[in-house]
Amino acid sequence: MAWQWFHRLGSPRWFYEKTSRWLVWFAPLTIALLLIGLIWGLAFAPIDAKQGNSYRIIFIHMPAAVLSLVGYYIMAIAGGVGLIWRMKLPFMVMQAAAPIGAALTILTLATGSLWGYPTWGTFWEWDARNIFMLVLLFLYLGIVVLGKVYPVRDAADKACAILALVGTVNVPIIYKSVDWWYSLHQPASIKFTGASSIHPSMLYPLLLCIVAYYCFYTLSLILYTRREVLVREARTQWVGELVGAPNNGDKSGGERHA
């Protein structure tokens, strides 16, 4: 009986109804946090002595980088749970996490190169963190593509889960090897401002931004998963009742193939 809550977690309907209640306060909270964090960081935090205003992109860049890595593990763990306990919902979470993660890596890469231009004089530098983010993007894309090309959704879920799990073994190895590669090839002209102590007036908005990003990630994961739930359960009675019209389900079912 102690496991009942766990298996209820696997019920898409339970998830949908629970999150409907959470979203009412969680969505405004996330938007508020995000706005406060970004405005604080972009407008009110003090200017950096060396980099000027361009450093401010860190408030967007750094949390995105953190979340894109964390997101990979969230995706893989969801896939693993789905494989082991044969539950539907974790697979939906996994499939929702892949495009979000891919978007976050793209955001990280884009903001990184925007920062790189005034700082390094180039949009793309073969820097360890750049390469790692790029490879992470490929890993995400692999999962997204694999999930799309499979003819049967059930098999697609399991195949993606296996790929994601193998990826989790590989991600630290990739990280280490890229790091090591960079230490061998590091061009002398580029120096990092290391792990110098960051002033609290910059640190606090950064921390707030990270918290806000975590909330934002959770929010988008919930919204994506809810969409996935509706699409996959389109033919069930409860979704039919929820949408109100009996044929509405088919419409959202067709969306996936469109």
Binding site: G142, L146, L163, N170
Partner: peptide, 10 residues
């Protein structure tokens, strides 16, 4: 190719 290449990197 897409899913294997990133894993080849190390």
């Amino acid at each position: 190719t897409l899913i294997v290449m990133p894993l080849y990197l190390p």
